[in-house]
Structures are given as C-alpha cells and as structure tokens.
Design a protein around this nucleic acid. Structure first.
Length: 502
RNA sequence: GGCGCUAUCGUCUAGGGGUCAGGACGGAUGGUUCUCAGCCAUCAGACCGGGGUUCGAAUCCCCGUAGCGCUACCA
C-alpha cells in the first residue's frame, strides 16, 4: 500500500454531504482534503448527495452545496449521485444479510425500546439493544412478518475486536461488545445511514473514505458490514473537527459557518481554500500562503493533524488581505462591481473600455493594501467616485476645529492659502502637488502636517486615506479646489464653530 | 454513565531521545511616514500532570487529568 503521498492511481474517494442546509466550512474542508487527495494521486472524486432523510433534504440545499464547492474551486469527477436513487440496492444488501443469517427482524418497536433505554439510563447503566428478537425462531419471524407486524432489520454484530489502520489516527480499534445490533432497515423499509453508506461505497468501488472525526464510531459498524458480505473495506482517514473559539465543534451559534456567508462577506475563494487547508494540515517548512498546485504536490493524509482546530477568523482575514494584495486591479474591479452598484457609485465609464477605466484602476490600486475584505473597497472609495460624502465627526474634531490647529479660523486661512497654491499647479501630479504644498508651508514657517491633515478631511472626509498626494492627483485639480472651497465655507459657518473643543 | 479520539506559545502549526523548542496569525515596541494600512526590525509567549524506560525525555511506555466526539427506526 502506497503511503506518504506517493501517487497511487486507481484511488476513488467520495464527498458525501447531506443536503439539509448550507455548505458548512467543516464540510468544505472535508471536500477539500478529498479533492487534494485525488489530485495528488490522479484519482477520482465522486460527489454523492446523501439525501435519504427525505424530511430534511431540500433541492435548494443541494444547489447551495454545489455552488459552494464550485466557488471554492473544488471540482468533482463523477456525480452528483443521489443516494435516494439507490434505495433498491440498499434494501437488497439488507435482504442478503437477512438471508445469510447475519441480520434478523426485530419487532420491538421504537416506543418500547425508548422506554427500556430510559429505564437503563435512570439506573445509570449503559444501554444496548438486548437482542430480544434475536431469540425469535426464523419461522416464527417470517410468520409475524407475513401477518403484517412492523419490524426493522437488525445486523447481528459478531463478537470480537474490530480494528483498522486509520490513515490519520493510526491503529484504532473497538471491541464489538460495545456495539449494539444496528438497525439496517427501518420498519418502513428505508435504509439507515450505515447500510446506505456501505452499500454505496461498495457500489462505487470507493478505495478511501475521508470524512470527519465524528464518524469514527461508525467505522467499526461499517467494517463489520463489509466483513459480513466478504468484501474488502476501504481505507479510512478521519479528519479532526473544526472547532469554535470555545473548542466545541463549530456551529451556527459561533457565527458565520457557511461557505456562502464568507463569500458574501467579501472573502476570496482562494483565501478560504488556503485557510481551510491549513486547518489541520501543514506541508511543513512554515509555508502558509500556497497555490493549489503547491498544496497538491505536498499533500499527504498522513501529515494531517489529529487534533481539532479552532477556526481563527483573524488569520483568515489576514490571508484574505494577502490574496487581495496580489490581485490584479482589474480583477478587483470585477469583484467589487456589485458593491459599487448597490452603493449607487458605479457608472459605465469605469467599465473596461470606459473613459475613466485607467483612473479607476489606479484608485483601486491605491486602496488595495488597506483592504482586508472586498467590501472595504466600497467603504473607502466613495470620495473618489462621488462628491457626495460626509465629514466624519472625529476627523473634523481632530483636524479642522481643534484649538491647537488654530481653531476653525486658523484652519480656514490655511486652506484658503493652499487653494491658492494648488490652483496654479500643472500638471496636477503627486510630485507637483507635494512640492507646492511643502513650499507653501515652508514659506509660512509652518509644518506641512498643518496643511496635510485638514486637506485630507476636506478631500475625503476622514482622517485616514492613502497618501495625500496620491489622493490629490487621483481627485484632480478641479474637484480638489471645489472641496477646499467646501471646507472653507464649512469652517466659517457656525456649524464648525459649534464643534470647537478646547 | 459507556466507548472512542486528542493533548507544543492565546490561535494555526514545525519538530521529535541530546534544539537557544522554529515559523505564521494575533499582541507589544521601534523604524519608514502626511494619517491609516502596508512593509521592515525587535520583544513577550508553549511541550497538561505524575510515574517509568534511558547516560539523557517535550519526544517512547503506563497511569491520571482535561477537552472533544459518538452513544437514534439522523446523516
């Protein structure tokens, strides 16, 4: 058996989500590891929708899951197959087990069993099905069935130990005495999870089952089923769970857990993919940001951690900012277009081929390093695309009306002078505007900062922005002068005076 | 309760019988500078506890402890 990542052709794995909601990031990571594994070994990834729980499964959910996977760049080779379409095969497998004496009918009834279970629990005893119906004579069993008595089919768990060499956990074993006779077929004839799973995995010739840790205790049951039909079980690899900050399995109460949610929040698929891959796996050598190809090349199930990993949003955010930084401005433009439209900021001359396209890409470039998620662009870009923006109160207090800046009157005087100095600058470039501003400040024996800070508020309304001369050049002379005029009249109005703080 | 899994900085992890226990996120400090971000530099910060085995244990074994998972006619 090949291991440690050596390509092993013929590998067939599956990702088997149940469509009862969104695509959970935990599920996405399971899919991701399956995907990495198949790419590494040039194997086949099969997508199987486990929709046998009719009451909870929805088509909408199937769509969401498929979209999520596609968005993340996780493609599959076969499927999607729907488990509900192979109910026949599952039933056949159960009957085969029944006929060979590996399974039996149980007439106990859910209510009666529930009562027994409760009673046992009350005494603090462990409950396991007591095999009441195993003692029924086969003839009698058939007769009761024919008479219409509702029954489930139970697998008769044989004595002995069950063990397997888990690809991530190593040797793992269970004593079958702790496993109860599992229900294979419900009284309505529908198959239960373990039966369907084994039946499908057999049918699909799955060679490696890569799934969450929470399935470890199902594994011995499934191995027993393989044995009962004299089939070779696949190899198993159980991935550690993704945890919330409280170290409990990540769930909705921890906040965002669906792939769709991260997409909507402005995370890049490649960043989420990279982040998820790092949760429980490391290629060593301290590599963090990696391309998919690099991940594939270094991937090995054996290198996956056994410990649950906490989903650290801060690190995701950092990774996302790294990916945003590496993005081409044109790509950013495409990605934020929807945000801008919603904010009423988009006009067609920003589109490819539009009159202001190049200028728009420069604005994006200027905002890139301070954007961690996509919506950060829409948040900061307003003063570049529109004259309709507010002065932030804290910026006004800090740089327009503060007493140490000479109060509104002092600042107004400086802005008026600056307007005059800037009016004659041509071409209106970063370098030229910087030279004009610094010369003005020097001539009046004042620090450049006394001009720069109020200018920033006048230009963008906030105390934070890209380099002021970059902003100036981007905004252009005409609009910059108009904004200085606006600031001066604001400063000279009572509105500003009322905000003076001593 | 039973069974199982797990245990390195706050978090993600590297390492693995002899290391200054390394990196990344986050934090702190300093530098660049017109602000913020970025970038650069520096610092703080960990081998769960106890027994073995061994010349030597964070590393191997055992026992505790803790956390988590499973314990359905859900998947």
């Amino acid at each position: 058996m090949a291991s440690h990542g050596a390509p092993e052709p013929g590998v067939r794995v599956r990702f088997a989500p149940s469509p009862t909601g969104f695509l959970h990031v935990g599920g996405a990571r399971t899919a991701l590891f399956n995907w990495l594994f198949t790419r590494r070994h040039r194997g086949t990834l099969i997508l199987r929708i486990e929709d046998t729980d009719v009451a909870r499964s929805t088509e909408e959910s199937v769509r969401t899951i498929l979209e999520g996977l596609t968005w993340l760049g996780i493609g599959w080779d076969e499927g999607p197959f729907f488990q509900s379409r192979s109910l026949e095969a599952h039933g056949a497998l159960a009957r085969r087990l029944l006929e060979s004496g590996r399974a039996y009918r149980c007439f106990c009834g859910a209510a009666a069993l529930e009562a027994k279970r409760k009673a046992a629990e009350a005494e603090g005893a462990a409950w396991k099905y007591d095999r009441t119906c195993l003692r029924i004579d086969p003839e009698e069993s058939r007769r009761r069935q024919a008479a219409g008595a509702p029954a489930v089919i139970r697998f008769r768990v044989p004595d002995g130990a069950v063990s397997w060499d888990d690809l991530v956990h190593g040797p793992t074993s269970f004593d079958s005495s702790v496993i109860e006779d599992i229900v294979l077929l419900r009284s309505d004839g529908s198959p239960t999870y373990n039966l369907s799973c084994v039946s499908d995995d057999l049918e699909m010739r799955i060679t490696h089952v890569i799934r969450g840790d929470d399935h470890i205790s199902n594994t011995p049951k499934q191995i027993l089923l393989y044995r009962a039909v004299a089939a070779e079980p696949p190899r198993f690899a159980h991935l550690p769970l993704i945890l919330g900050p409280d170290k409990k399995r990540l769930s909705k109460r921890h906040g965002a857990v669906s792939v769709t949610e991260y997409r909507e929040r402005g995370y890049l698929p490649e960043a989420l993919f990279n982040f998820l891959a790092l949760l429980g796996w490391s290629p060593g050598e301290g590599r963090e940001k990696m391309t998919k190809e690099e991940m594939i090349a270094g991937f090995a199930l054996e290198a996956i951690n056994r410990k649950g990993a906490i989903f650290d949003e801060q690190k995701l955010e950092w990774l996302n900012s790294q990916y945003i930084n590496d993005l081409d401005p044109a790509r950013v433009a495409a990605l934020i277009r929807g945000d801008l439209e919603r904010a009423g900021l988009f006009v067609h001359d920003l589109d490819e081929g539009g009159a202001r396209r190049d200028w728009f890409l420069h604005v994006i470039q200027a905002l890139k390093t301070r954007s961690k998620i996509l919506p950060d662009f829409a948040r900061d870009i307003r003063p570049f695309l529109s004259d309709d923006f507010e002065y932030r109160p804290e910026a006004v207090e800090k740089h327009l009306t503060a007493a140490k800046e000479g109060g509104p009157q002092g600042v107004a005087a400086r802005m008026r002078a600056l307007r005059g100095a800037l009016a004659g600058v041509s071409p209106f470039t970063e370098a030229a505007t910087e030279e004009a501003l610094r010369a003005l400040a020097a001539s009046r024996d004042e620090p450049a900062a006394a001009y720069i800070h109020p200018l920033r508020v006048a230009l963008v309304g906030t105390a934070v922005s890209p380099g002021i001369f970059t902003v100036l050049a981007l905004i252009g002379r005409e609009r910059a002068l108009a904004r200085l005029d606006r600031a001066v009249s604001f400063l000279e109005s009572g509105d500003a005076a009322s905000r003076i703080r001593q």
